[in-house]
Design a protein around this nucleic acid. Structure first.
Lengths: 216, 216
DNA sequence: GTCTATAATAGGATAGAC
DNA sequence: GTCTATCCTATTATAGAC
């Protein structure tokens, strides 16, 4: 394992740079979430990473670019990870139940970033704001579409898909503002409780917990 | 109507001062909502009111005190105006329906202030933050209590009042982030739709729209 | 109650050495 | 890729005249 073959340890430099970028984004998300974007200085982010303020500009052109990276994490990831659940096999109830599950688990896994992404959109440049809003609107539309599909199939008895989609997503996203696992309320309990509240109760599906055959 | 009786035109000076205070709070809420608290300077607030920056300090000791005033509006007012609806006569379904109605109308009437109050709490001083959180927690507890009452009376079939209270309030508060009246979605439609989604569908009440006698 | 003028500080960002 | 040093500007807040 000498240095004869450079390809044996490929992209070591690039990987390290990428890792440092992610350290910066993670540290920034933490401080932004606690104090608010505009109240945090580049020096404070740098301290959290363990470098000097000027070094951040080797990785990001501006403070807003760091915020943009945080916001991308919580708008693009759900589109890439959760929306495929809506394209999978199954009834609208089953597919929406899977999305609610995935959505809540992503909200928790990226809890810090979501707090920023849901509160600091006003600080983005107009171009970045438009892009982020586009991801969010697409996600919203896909949720509305699966509700509409469930209404057509007769599974959902709700009268207005648009209103229901707002209600569902606001209810889900609210989680990141209050959920802290404790002795009598862990994530699995919230997830199954919310799937029931949304899919069975609010939308009116007869059942949805586990994959099932279509009704005869 | 001479100057013999000072009480004939009472508090004229105080009323004007109070009015200017409210102008400042209103202008600040607008700019905070659009750009975020920390991104707004005292000069910008002053411009919106039509005075110089220094003049604001005659009415408020600091920028944070203005934010505190905005946050008080959207945490104390709902406690004072909406919570009495939970103490009125009627079944838990009826009382919660009235609260949902009042809550949504307040969210809309104080739309700008709510955007600030829901996004900028991190910028409050610890003391103010604690006070505001107290109002919010009390409101949340009252909603949970009426849900518990409905569970005991058998009207609500939901399994967990705490989880349901979070779901309901997050769903309601989300309104201020997206609702703009348009041709096919006015406030009355959203209110009646959300009352149905929350009280009838999510919580499981058989009906609640209008006052009714208890079931035999 | 509002003004002008200014203090005191901190902010984002850049230049250039290593 | 990170550092030191620094520029330039904007900020909150105060002092004191009117």
């Amino acid at each position: 394992m000498g240095e004869a073959d450079g390809a044996a340890v490929p992209m070591t430099r690039g990987a390290r740079t990428r890792q440092r970028r992610e350290e910066i984004v993670a540290a920034a998300a933490r401080t932004f979430a606690e104090q608010g974007y505009a109240a945090v200085g580049m020096r404070e982010i740098a301290d959290a990473v363990g470098v000097r303020g000027a070094s951040l500009y080797h990785h990001f052109a501006s403070k807003e670019e760091i915020l943009y990276a945080v916001c991308l994490t919580v708008t693009r990831e759900p589109n890439e990870e959760n929306l495929p659940l809506l394209d999978a096999a199954g009834t609208p109830s089953q597919r929406l139940a899977a999305l609610v599950d995935g959505h809540l688990r992503h909200l928790h896994r990226r809890r810090t970033e979501h707090v920023v992404g849901l509160h600091e959109l006003a600080a983005l440049t107009p171009g970045h704001r438009t892009e982020i809003d586009g991801y969010r609107r697409y996600y919203q539309r896909r949720v509305r579409d699966v509700i509409t599909a469930g209404m057509r199939s007769g599974e959902f008895t709700v009268p207005d898909a648009r209103l229901a989609a707002f209600a569902v997503l606001d209810m889900l996203n609210g989680l990141s503002n209050w959920f802290r696992p404790d002795r009598d309320l862990d994530l699995d309990a919230v997830v199954s409780g919310y799937v029931d509240l949304v899919v069975v109760r609010m939308l009116g599906a007869a059942h949805c917990a586990s994959p099932q055959a279509p009704r005869p």
